[in-house]
Nucleic acid binder design. Structure first.
Lengths: 343, 343
DNA sequence: TTAGTTTGTGCAAAGGATTGCATAAGTATT
DNA sequence: AATACTTATGCAATCCTTTGCACAAACTAA
């Protein structure tokens, strides 16, 4: 059914240029008469005319599309990020195309390739791995790109993330203050920016408190819930199990909860738990989960702002923005000192 | 940096056609010599050549893109649906563009417009409202489209959804069997396919059990958590409050939990709760939530299958597929009879 | 009357890739 | 020596939109 400018031109007797100007351009600029405008618009409507974004993009060398790549759409953290980004982008007349890299760097690479072929005007990426050569290439090709959440220290690209190290410090210090010393860390994907910083924060908090680091308490290898489940099971079997666990992400925490339930381990009585990320359901979990909250909408706003700046001004100095996290204390941590006193 | 076939043609001395055939087509078909292939490929690599999907789409009248529209990406149900769809589509070499209509029919319309302008090869839509004239238009224009989750009885379009009525029956019958008679229903967006069916199931279950329907117990107006929160607060203030609530969606249930917590209402002791949708976190909530589970990955597979069929065979008879839901009984429902006996 | 301005519209190129048809040279067949 | 294939490549049209430039007609100013 879809008609073209040419069809309308033939029907009305005007040229394609005139039709184009009436339907898209400010027909003011070319001073198209009211009469012509009316005729053209009528026929366009009758024909159900719809611009062809492919042809337009080809001609204009601009698509008004932004590509977004996240490691896992179904992770509430990322779906919130996308939702916020969507709002920001829509405001400025941009659309977006989302890809889910499924925590797989090969899919991430393919996604980037595909987005660049589509000639998106910019990219927002939460990257998966530790290798950033593919991102470097985008940068070098002067395609505007912003990293969110997952960044690379050694890569000079605009980026926004939460201060992961500080977030971990907040969480672990809280546990220490409550009297815990055997604190396990179930990490996400090692090598990942977010993960390494959280690990660093964890270690640093322990060291500052004079608590020796026990490598057997640092476990795990991805951000999914199965990881949390398995590692918790193993941790619980240790001869000298931890009294508290700090998990690197919300899904991991869910897995930990599942394992505890199965093993009849009561939180917070038998085991304390704090997690990074603070999904909407955290306060309704059993028990309500203490968690490090990331300022998601600020991250999205900032990412969008950085991207616009880069698109307007390609050679501007790159910036790396760190936002402050916040610890929400709920009821998944017990006070170990009290317990000892009452025992 | 991005070069074109023409650039490579000029550099190598071959024609654009030859270059195109080497880089994309099966160069077998046109019997390009090994030597030529090697030369062209080398230059293409040096130049960092990348097809222009706009130009290709324009020429081929096919983009290998599928548009997906959901009412709320951050709703776990929809983010799971998207994730599953992504997997299915990727298998067949299709990419997808997601839009979030934010439960707003105007945005949904704009999203459809935008996707059609981009010339997507097909659409998968979870529609928002009760009006389907815009979907009808897509259908009439013979653009392949499949509805998921939210469908329209009177609209002859391929669709997949769970048997919402049966799901509601399962939930409410469970409550009735446990001795409840004052059962409230907090609905989602009225007029929505999913909502109306769930409402129908709710009413039907009550009628079958000979329980009169109390319109004051049918409340609510959208699928968000704030709705659950507000309506629960109001229900609890009723002179004769319900002993059980059935919520139409997972986010609503979250709102209900929040209200109960604030009002110090214990679930399931003071109030029983069952919800439609069964998000991953349902079993870790306090208490573990009894919920009606939708077969999400089956829905996605089916949606993708229907879409492929329609794309290959545009005039095939339309199908409406209903999948069976499953009630997961956990611990948010109390047995009212026992309670009375022990009192 | 002549020159200059305004109004309204069209021509044609460009953007990048694909592909049916044509063609040239070389090989095989009779 | 004439014919028929095969191999390897190029030509040119097509997909649809945008836009600088050109131009005709009508009007204004001198």
């Amino acid at each position: 059914m879809s008609s073209t400018l040419k069809d309308i031109a033939e029907k009305t007797g005007f040229s394609v240029s005139t039709v184009s100007r009436v339907l898209h351009d400010n027909s003011q600029k070319y001073k198209i008469s009211e009469e012509t405008q009316a005729k053209v618009k009528k026929v366009a409507k009758d024909f159900g005319y719809r611009v062809n974004a492919l042809a337009r993009g080809l001609r204009l060398q601009k698509t008004f599309e932004i590509g977004i790549i996240v490691p896992d759409i179904s992770n509430p953290f990322f779906s919130e990020v996308i939702k916020s980004l969507a709002g920001e982008l829509r405001k400025k007349g941009y659309n977006f195309i989302v890809y889910d890299s499924d925590e797989d760097i090969a899919i991430e690479r393919a996604a980037i390739k595909s987005l660049l072929e589509k000639r998106v005007d910019g990219l927002i990426i939460a990257s998966v791995g530790q290798d950033f050569s593919h991102i470097q290439k985008i940068r070098d090709a002067e395609i505007p790109v912003v990293m969110v959440d997952r960044c690379f220290d050694d890569l000079d690209v605009d980026s926004v993330s939460v201060d992961n190290m500080n977030g971990a410090l907040l969480a672990v210090n809280h546990l220490i203050k409550e009297g815990h010393t055997r604190i396990a860390f179930i990490q996400g994907l090692p090598g990942t920016y977010a993960n390494e910083r959280r690990l660093q924060g964890y270690k640093s908090a322990l060291q500052d408190a004079g608590i020796p680091i026990d490598e057997r308490l640092i476990v795990g290898d991805d951000f999914r819930s199965l990881n949390g489940y398995l590692e918790t099971k193993l941790l619980l079997k240790l001869a000298n199990p931890p009294t508290a666990i700090f998990t690197a992400g919300d899904l991991i925490a869910l897995g930990t909860l599942e394992a505890c339930k199965e093993n009849n381990v009561k939180i917070p009585d038998d085991l304390s738990l704090v997690t990074f990320d603070d999904p909407v359901f955290a306060s309704y979990l059993s028990p309500a989960l203490s968690a490090v909250e990331q300022p998601i909408s600020k991250m999205a706003e900032m990412a969008a702002a950085l991207l616009y700046r880069r698109m307007r001004n390609p050679l501007d100095e790159r910036r790396k923005v760190l936002l402050e996290p916040k610890l929400n204390i709920r009821s998944s941590v017990s006070r170990l000192i009290d317990k000892k006193q009452t025992e």
